[in-house]
């Protein structure tokens, strides 16, 4: 379960997986099918299911690790566990209908390992919900339009559509609470958040190498999730740098 090659200063121990799963650490170790490969969508669905597991595990850990967090925030995190657990089953249903089994493709647990290495809740929220999940929103929005363009309204389209509505809520509550926690915690909270984002960026460089996939920023959905115009502009600039 612990991977010696990753620096424990940047990565916590990984979550448990049963024997069906083949867990890899680096993006380069994944299968990375070519865009024309018919297995691409199956591998994407399988990987996405595991990312939803990571999302659920991170929220669960936040509940267990921060018992003194405000109750409303804990309710939102508990709700996220429920949402992610439903997404896991929905993704599983989608790839099983396409003849794929659990564990057929390798998976990565970098999100869990990066985020649970962050000691503050504000830092975890900023990285998971405002960064990973927000990037997830862009990816889903992109996939929704791609899937609709390719296949019309399919089970995938339906899944992404429903999932997107939930993910918007997750990003929104994180946006609200990061602001509130910053108000409550003052300079110390800002420092914790900055440190968390910097740790996560460093860790992601190791995981992704040169192979990170950037999706176009879903401006309207990000706006709905509580991002300001300035924050959306920053996200667009980062995508432009990453894909340029």
């Amino acid at each position: 379960m612990t991977t010696p090659q990753l620096d424990p200063k940047l990565f916590a121990e990984g979550p448990k997986r049963d024997s069906r799963f083949d867990v890899r650490d680096l993006w380069a170790e994944m299968q990375n099918f070519d865009a024309s490969d018919p297995r691409l969508i199956n591998e994407f669905l399988h990987r996405q299911m595991n990312e939803e597991i990571n999302g659920m595990e991170i929220s669960a850990r936040n509940l267990a690790d921060f018992p003194d967090a405000p109750w409303e925030l804990r309710m939102s995190m508990a709700r996220q566990c429920w949402d992610e657990s439903r997404h896991i089953e929905a993704f599983r249903g989608c790839f099983e209908r396409r003849g794929v089994e659990v564990g057929e493709y390798p998976v990565m647990n970098f999100q869990y390992r990066v985020i649970t290495n962050i000691p503050s809740l504000i830092g975890r929220l900023a990285v998971q919900n405002r960064s990973f999940e927000a990037a997830g929103i862009d990816a889903i929005q992109n996939e929704v339009s791609e899937a609709a363009r390719r296949e019309g309204r399919t089970d995938l389209d339906e899944l992404f559509d429903g999932q997107l509505a939930d993910e918007v809520q997750h990003v929104r509550y994180a946006n609200v609470w990061v602001k509130k926690l910053m108000e409550l915690g003052g300079a110390a909270a800002v420092f914790q958040m900055t440190k968390a984002v910097s740790l996560a960026n460093e860790a992601l460089k190791i995981i992704a190498g040169d192979a990170a996939t950037m999706y176009p920023v879903a401006e309207d959905v990000r706006r709905e999730a509580g991002f300001t115009e300035d924050e959306i502009d920053v996200a667009k600039r980062l995508v432009a740098q990453g894909t340029g």
Partner: peptide
């Protein structure tokens, strides 16, 4: 919640 990541 504590059991979730630690259950395989």
């Amino acid at each position: 919640a504590a059991w979730t990541p630690t259950t395989a």
